[in-house]
Simulated assay, not measured.
Amino acid sequence: MNTLSSTARWALLAGLVLAGSAQAESSPWTLRLGPANVRFSTDAEVSVNGARVPGANAEASSNTTLGFELAYALDPRWTARLLGGIPPTTTLTGTGALAGTGTLGKVTYGPLAGTVTWNLLTDGPVRPYLGAGLNYTVVFKSRDGFIANLDAKSAFGTVLQAGLDLPLSDRWTLSLDARKIFVKTQADGVLPAMGGAAAHADVRLDPLVVFLSLGTRF
């Protein structure tokens, strides 16, 4: 009787483990983690006391941070994705007519991109996909440089995405993709070197985010 009871308990435990594994394998949810590199294509129009400064421009330094993506498979072809990451800090440097000013300031930001992708292939060792969506770049903190009282604004933008999945097993996937984000923002401050003149910039950032990740269904 005890032997039968023990066998039944082990059978029940094995069934629960197998059921949990099958549920994970069939789950539509995937979590991906890995390095995300952000490279900006910056262009700025700078004004001082309301007058545009010809040739004045700025560039933003590239960043690499830990990215994470939560994905939900709507069906075998369509997937909804949300990408975020640990907020990095970019350094703004003057170029053109501002080349001698050095560091204009620093901005800690977090690009949050929501996209929907279409899988070109649903089977095979390599599964490419294309997608599009919306981005919200959140500015968490601005630090002064040549510009004092720097205030950079959060902004919405659009996203184009292309990537590929390399399934390692039923649960694990290695992924590589790129998201081109089109976003324009504004920044304000004052210039102590020019007697506290008011500075304003319309800045097009247009970053390219390259994300290498390992994902698991859960």
Results as ranks from 00 to 15, higher is better:
117 T>I: 13
204 R>L: 05
74 L>K: 00
105 G>C: 05
217 R>F: 15
196 G>R: 06
156 F>K: 05
187 A>P: 00
140 F>D: 02
7 T>M: 14
134 L>W: 10
101 T>E: 04
26 S>V: 00
73 A>S: 09
141 K>L: 11
162 A>D: 00
195 G>L: 11
140 F>A: 04
175 S>K: 02
37 N>R: 14
99 A>S: 08
213 S>I: 07
170 D>I: 00
141 K>H: 06
158 T>I: 08
25 E>D: 15
111 P>T: 13
54 P>C: 11
47 S>F: 01
123 D>H: 12
196 G>S: 07
177 D>Q: 05
178 A>K: 15
68 F>T: 15
13 L>S: 13
146 F>G: 13
76 P>M: 07
129 Y>K: 09
118 W>D: 08
8 A>V: 09
216 T>D: 02
46 V>L: 00
170 D>R: 15
72 Y>A: 03
135 N>C: 05
105 G>M: 05
112 L>N: 04
200 H>F: 02
126 V>H: 08
80 A>V: 15
83 L>P: 07
44 A>W: 01
84 G>V: 10
60 A>T: 01
169 S>K: 05
54 P>R: 12
90 T>S: 15
38 V>C: 00
2 N>V: 08
91 T>P: 04
138 V>T: 06
97 A>C: 03
114 G>K: 09
2 N>C: 12
106 K>H: 02
204 R>W: 04
129 Y>I: 00
214 L>T: 12
13 L>Y: 14
65 T>E: 08
76 P>T: 07
103 T>E: 07
66 L>D: 12
172 W>T: 08
11 A>C: 03
149 N>I: 01
12 L>I: 04
6 S>W: 03
102 G>V: 04
8 A>D: 07
22 A>S: 15
93 T>W: 00
149 N>Q: 07
85 G>F: 13
127 R>K: 11
126 V>R: 07
93 T>L: 01
8 A>M: 13
20 G>V: 05
68 F>N: 10
100 G>V: 08
62 S>W: 05
189 G>D: 08
162 A>L: 13
32 R>Y: 14
182 F>L: 12
200 H>E: 09
28 P>C: 02
86 I>H: 14
198 A>W: 04
183 V>M: 12
83 L>R: 06
141 K>Q: 15
78 W>R: 11
137 T>H: 07
197 A>V: 14
63 N>T: 07
215 G>H: 03
60 A>I: 00
96 G>V: 06
